[in-house]
């Protein structure tokens, strides 16, 4: 057994930060996949075609109603059986993203339905078709309502990525387990890892507050200063339709 590296030794270990980087990009990519799925599945739920509504409802029912770890393990063992041979990291992204998509679907659906129906009436009378109405009228307004919950989901996702340790992806948790095996002072290793997770979620939290304040400022829009703040934000997070 090696002499234990101690808390600071663990915290400055290169392999820990490499694993942290894996956790971060895995979480971001999986969350983006979830967002994209949500943006597709939520409108389906409002489709005039009943089968499309059913597909969306069944998807949410299934993936929100069963354990995430089970889903990840299932992807891992089922995909090779049906002849799909993906790198394990891709399986991890798929497992996390498809599960997240169910929650994002519900979030996007809530945001879409809170845009007043008068908005779509006005758009339709002006000759905007369904796509143009979504692109220029409904989505920009829904986007403001999605940003807050999306930020929270991202926070959860940084931690949920630890589940892919079970299929052998070396992210923070897996790296920690491995490091802890070779020391007689696992507590220092775990504390170092907890510190890294906290650092990630804290930085994210600060970013989230910054963006949310800007969105709130744009929404209040009571003076010229506010308008400018809103315009800067539009550039920053690309609210669709902020520019003509």
């Amino acid at each position: 057994m090696n002499p234990h590296p101690g808390f600071l030794g663990s915290l400055t270990s290169g392999s820990l930060w490499a694993a942290a980087w894996t956790t971060i990009w895995l979480a971001v990519v999986a969350q983006l996949l979830g967002l994209v799925i949500g943006l597709v599945m939520a409108p389906l739920r409002r489709s005039r075609l009943a089968p499309l509504r059913w597909v969306s409802a069944a998807y949410v029912w299934f993936f929100r109603g069963s354990p995430e770890l089970l889903q990840i393990l299932a992807w891992y063992s089922v995909l090779p059986l049906v002849g799909v041979d993906l790198p394990v990291i891709a399986v991890g992204i798929l497992g996390l993203g498809v599960n997240e998509g169910a929650r994002m679907t519900e979030i996007v659906r809530g945001a879409l339905s809170s845009v007043d129906s008068g908005q779509t009436d006005a758009a339709r009378v002006l000759g905007l078709g369904p796509w143009a109405t979504a692109r220029w009228v409904v989505l920009p307004q829904a986007a403001r309502l999605i940003i807050g919950p999306l930020g929270n989901q991202m926070n959860y996702m940084f931690k949920t990525t630890s589940l892919v340790a079970f299929i052998g992806i070396v992210e923070l948790l897996r790296e920690t387990q491995q490091a802890a095996q070779f020391t007689n002072a696992p507590l220092a290793v775990y504390l170092a890892t907890a510190t890294v997770y906290l650092a990630i979620t804290s930085v994210w939290g600060a970013l989230q507050r910054f963006v949310e304040q800007r969105v709130a400022a744009g929404k209040a829009a009571v003076g010229p200063g506010r308008v400018l703040a809103r315009r800067r934000l539009s550039g920053l997070i690309e609210i669709p339709g902020a520019h003509l």
């Binding site: 007043d116 008068g118 908005q119 009436d121 006005a122 758009a123 220029w136 009228v137 920009p140 307004q141 403001r144 609210i239 339709g241 902020a242």
Partner: peptide, 9 residues
């Protein structure tokens, strides 16, 4: 419309 329905954004 009665409620104007301007696009707020």
């Amino acid at each position: 419309f009665q409620n104007f329905n301007l696009f707020p954004h």
